[in-house]
């Protein structure tokens, strides 16, 4: 596997429909991200393909079933399989979501938000710390899109996120689209979110599209990135600086060439904004 000490640049989520492109060409990406669980099975074509692709591209494992916010105890079978995958890929970090998806051993196969209380933050941070120690590699947690808020919550999502990552001493995978989706659904200013989190803990970005359902936004990853999300990304650049970014697409997936054109928009926005900001600061 290609060893990775640190990561820069722009990449895409690796999906099976693009395997052939990655095997026959060297697409212009700086790294790729995989859904960890899809490669935590014991064999099959996907694993063999990943091994080939990982020889040429840095690969970041991004999970959906860690369920760090679950009141269940940690699933050591899951963690052992994840560690095996992560150790094989040797990435600078691995990621999953600040959410819960499992309860009493049953999986909801969705990313459910947590009540934002100090007690829950402390509990989740402890779990994250144990996971990070076991994996012997930095964990970065992603903010999820959400459609509900609990009456039990006593703080904002970004205050909760800050409390968890600070107590756990882990990094942040800041999904710009998720901030935008939740901001519309819960009526807050997305810039309050961006300004409210510890910038020095942001290790990676996600960017994606969503679906407008009329009365709310649904995080579907089945559209191009819309302008308001690009605008938010543009506004975040002076705050977070150079952060590696993954463009996610999970449904209605275009050709890799089309996806790379969209990825190039992120590059252009970053270059233009970063340069401008550097000149202004100087």
């Amino acid at each position: 596997m290609k060893p990775v000490d640190s990561l820069k640049g722009f990449g895409v989520g690796l999906r099976p429909c693009h395997y052939a492109d990655f095997l026959s060409n060297q697409p212009k990406v700086d790294f790729v991200e995989i859904i960890s669980e899809n490669y935590m099975v014991t064999g099959g074509r996907s694993i063999e393909t990943l091994q080939e692709i990982a020889k040429r591209n840095p690969v970041i494992p991004h999970g959906v079933s860690l369920s760090v916010g679950s009141s269940d105890q940690l699933d050591w079978d899951y963690l052992t399989r994840l560690k095996k995958l992560v150790d094989t890929l040797n990435p600078p970090w691995f990621s999953d979501h600040l959410c819960w998806s499992r309860h009493q051993g049953h999986y909801m196969h969705n990313l459910l938000p947590l009540p934002y209380t100090h007690e829950v933050a402390k509990f989740v941070a402890e779990k994250a710390r144990i996971i990070q120690d076991f994996m012997e590699r930095p964990l970065i947690l992603e903010n999820v899109s959400s459609y509900i808020e609990y009456t039990d919550s006593v703080m904002t999502e970004w205050e909760f996120l800050t409390e968890v990552v600070t107590q756990a001493d882990c990094g942040l995978l800041l999904d710009i689209n998720n901030i935008y989706v939740s901001a519309v659904n819960h009526t807050f200013d997305p810039m309050d979110y961006i300004l409210g989190i510890p910038a020095n803990r942001v290790r990676q970005h996600h960017i994606a599209g969503h679906k407008n359902k009329g009365t709310f936004l649904l995080d579907t990853h089945d559209h191009n990135v819309p302008d308001p999300v690009w605008d938010l990304y543009r506004q975040s650049i002076p705050i977070f600086g150079e952060v590696p970014l993954i463009l996610e697409r999970d449904d209605d997936i275009p050709t890799l060439d089309e996806l790379l054109i969209e990825l190039n928009i992120a590059r252009q926005i970053f270059n233009a904004t970063h340069t401008q900001h550097t000149h202004t600061s100087a």
Partner: peptide
């Protein structure tokens, strides 16, 4: 490293 024993107690409101 051996897995840490399961000793975490979740907050009742979370359960």
């Amino acid at each position: 490293m051996q897995p840490t024993p399961n000793t975490l107690t979740p907050p009742p409101e979370l359960v």
